[in-house]
């Protein structure tokens, strides 16, 4: 009984802090990874002065950002300008409530997790719009408008691709989706088209490179965060990278089997034995194992995103951005939904 209460307490108070700390460290790591990968693709060295392989570079950057002066432009709407980074950070980290990091570890166990997940992940557009409007400057406004039309356009194929998964699995719980893949096969084999649609619209939602129009450096200086500096800029950057992590974790859970890998049962047994020797309950040691596998898989996806899109692709034009979604991805995802429904009935 006492054990149960302490586990609940852990889940309620410690887990959010742990996840936020993990996200912050992971964002720091990702900034390093992105710079390093892009540098190697472009035959440069990338950060290599601070620490081994330049691994301490993000820490140095963070320290620099903390020491920066907090500049608010005199024409800006001060309340909105200050609120925007906070809201975009909170909105970006909210979906992690509903993500199962393992079979037993999810902050909010609710029946309709998927709906809440989609709803909260779309909230980050509000933060961007607030930042763009509150700056009261021309480049941020243009960037913000582009960001909104991009998020709105690519939301629909994303949701339709997820709906095809719901059709196959028959549940809104993300743990059920992974369990289905445990019993049958990974959903990427059943939904190759859906995977492609989800991947592309996920890239657009996270505004990664072929769709990085909201902050295209060569046209709009820095887009919606042109006026931001110091920690406010850092929070906006955090929100963006957290969105990337979210999309890659979602791809992993929906299509690549979440924490499942071949031979997971042996690994679970090993984890339980190791856990027993330290007097850790078996569900906690399994949770840790699942968490590690999920995160490694998500980072492989992130590496692919950096490699395939950031390293090789170019930015698409703003005129073809929503058109590609409405004329290409939306009809395609509807057809995918119909085909999935027919196949499920058969």
């Amino acid at each position: 009984m006492l054990n149960m209460i302490s586990y609940e307490l852990l889940l309620f108070v410690l887990a959010p802090i742990l996840i936020l700390v993990f996200l912050s460290l992971d964002v720091l790591f990702l900034t390093w990874l992105e710079r390093k990968v892009i540098a190697r693709i472009q035959l440069r060295y990338g950060p290599n002065r601070t620490g081994p392989f330049g691994l301490l570079q993000p820490l140095a950057d963070a320290l620099k950002l903390i020491q920066k002066e907090d500049i608010i432009p005199k024409t800006a709407d001060k309340v909105v300008f200050t609120l925007a980074p906070i809201i975009s950070f909170v909105a970006a980290s909210l979906p992690f409530m509903f993500i199962p990091f393992s079979k037993f570890f999810q902050i909010s166990f609710i029946e309709n997790a998927l709906i809440f997940l989609l709803a909260t992940s779309a909230l980050s557009a509000i933060g961007i719009l607030l930042a763009a409007w509150g700056s009261n400057s021309k480049y941020p406004l243009l960037g913000g408008m582009r960001a909104i039309v991009q998020v709105l356009s690519y939301e629909i194929p994303l949701v339709l691709a997820v709906l095809s998964i719901v059709l196959i699995v028959g549940s809104f719980k993300l743990t059920d989706i992974v369990e289905f893949q445990e019993k049958n096969t990974w959903l990427i084999l059943l939904q190759p088209l859906g995977f492609l649609i989800f991947f592309i619209s996920g890239l657009a939602e996270a505004s990664r490179v072929p769709f990085d129009l909201p902050e295209s450096e060569s046209e709009l200086v820095a887009g919606f965060h042109t006026e931001y500096s110091g920690m406010k800029f850092a929070l906006l950057l955090f929100a963006e990278y957290i969105h990337l992590i979210l999309i890659s974790i979602l791809i992993t859970i929906f299509y690549l089997g979440g924490w499942l890998i071949p031979g997971i049962y042996y690994l679970e047994n090993i984890a339980i034995t190791i856990g027993n020797s330290f007097n850790i309950p078996s569900h906690i040691s399994i949770s840790i194992l699942h968490f590690i596998i999920l995160i490694i898989k998500a980072h492989i996806i992130i590496f692919l995103i950096l490699w395939i899109t950031r390293g090789t692709l170019f930015r698409i034009r703003v005129y073809s951005l929503p058109v590609f979604s409405w004329k290409g991805l939306v009809p395609l995802s509807m057809i995918n939904l119909i085909i999935t429904a027919i196949l499920v009935v058969m």
């Binding site: 309620f12 936020l20 020491q67 907090d70 950070f89 909170v90 980290s93 992690f96 902050i107």
Partner: peptide
Amino acid sequence: MFIFLIISFIFAIISLLLPRIFGHKKE
């Protein structure tokens, strides 16, 4: 569920208050 919301708000606000301590100001 709301605890996560509150904690992430606190997280964001603390990181915005950090420059008040460590940052400098020059008009």
